[in-house]
């Protein structure tokens, strides 16, 4: 089980992501980045898709990154990482880089750069089996360009391109299940985590970087501007996304599924929605139907995941008492 002290010890040893960037006050993304980078013991090389993280951390001539970092464009972070990783293998093969000093390749992309425009290059890279970890920081819309709807935007959310209005209750479509799409590539590790559960995320990262071939982790991040909550509530709102079952935490290891966190008390989705301005309109009388739809869909999905969890649970080493996650990698 990872501890926060281990993360701190790693950061004390090497501060991989520095401050002084221009990510917003109360932004959830740095929590993803620091938890991921501080959970990896080997040197890392980072590839970043265009988006908030990239723009806000690398304004020339400055950089927040104290590790090798590459950005090419919006839709191609996974493809660019394929190139870096292939060059690494070529240079090791030809004796130009040491074979006994492993490097971990990590890609960060937002939901726009991953669910939407970057899905093809991610799919290609997952299918080819490059050795890398792709981390999607999912804040559920194109926040960098000013809160436009993406395929990660939840049903009913008001964004600048799916605004609520006299005849609209916000986004009319369901969000895409990207984690399931990644899983369909039959890679050895896929996980879903959230910034409120750093131990869960850290644990998943440690497991993901150990598997053979690509790994994918979808992390729910938050955006106070786009979600319209108080900056100080960034972690709380993510916590509620998990506790309402809106964002279940799970992993799929070599095709076997398990929930990595089961909330002690399941909170009605309304509580989470009420915290965020983007859902405010759902509480108008005429939108009551939409609220019911949202709650029902969450419960249906949870039942489906619980069934998968029951079916596959025997393949994992049993959890210890009061432990909802584990670093034990052995599968039974």
């Amino acid at each position: 089980m990872p501890t926060i002290k281990q993360l701190a010890a790693n950061e004390a040893k090497e501060k991989r992501f520095r401050g002084g960037h221009s990510l917003c006050s109360g932004c959830g993304i740095p929590i993803v980045v620091r938890t991921v980078l501080n959970s990896i013991e080997t040197p890392v090389v980072v590839v970043n898709a265009t988006g908030c993280l990239e723009v806000a951390t690398t304004r020339f001539p400055n950089t927040a990154w104290n590790v090798p970092w590459l950005h090419v464009a919006f839709e191609n972070a996974a493809a660019a990482a394929s190139g870096v990783e292939s060059a690494y293998r070529a240079l090791v093969k030809r004796g130009k880089l040491p074979a006994d000093e492993p490097v971990t390749f990590v890609v960060f992309g937002g939901d726009g750069g991953t669910y939407d425009i970057g899905l093809q290059s991610l799919s290609g890279a997952l299918e080819r089996g490059h050795q890398f970890l792709y981390v999607c920081y999912d804040n559920e819309a194109y926040m960098n360009t000013g809160i436009q709807r993406s395929s990660a935007t939840p049903f009913g959310a008001s964004t600048t391109t799916s605004p609520e209005g006299k005849i609209s209750f916000g986004k009319a479509q369901q969000r895409k299940d990207l984690t399931a799409i990644a899983e369909a590539h039959h890679v050895n590790y896929v996980g879903q985590s959230a910034i409120s559960h750093w131990h869960d995320l850290s644990d998943k990262v440690k497991r993901a970087v150990e598997v053979d071939g690509p790994a994918f982790i979808n992390v729910l991040s938050t955006c106070q501007l786009g979600w319209r909550h108080e900056p100080r509530e960034a972690v709380k709102v993510a916590q509620l996304a998990v506790d309402t079952l809106f964002w279940p935490l799970y992993e799929v290891v070599k095709g076997r599924f398990r929930l990595t966190h089961i909330p002690e008390e399941i909170v009605p989705i309304e509580t989470w929605l009420r915290m965020q301005g983007r859902f405010k309109h759902l509480f108008k009388e005429e939108n009551a139907g939409a609220l019911e739809v949202i709650q029902q869909q969450i419960f249906d999905e949870w039942e489906r995941l619980k069934e998968r969890d029951r079916n596959d649970r025997a393949h994992f080493a049993p959890l210890q008492k009061d432990q909802t996650f584990t670093t034990e990698f052995e599968m039974v």
Partner: peptide, 20 residues
Amino acid sequence: INVESEHSAMSAAIGAATAG
């Protein structure tokens, strides 16, 4: 690298050339 498009071909080329 058997990429899935020319866009990715050039993206991978950029990654590889940058890598060294």
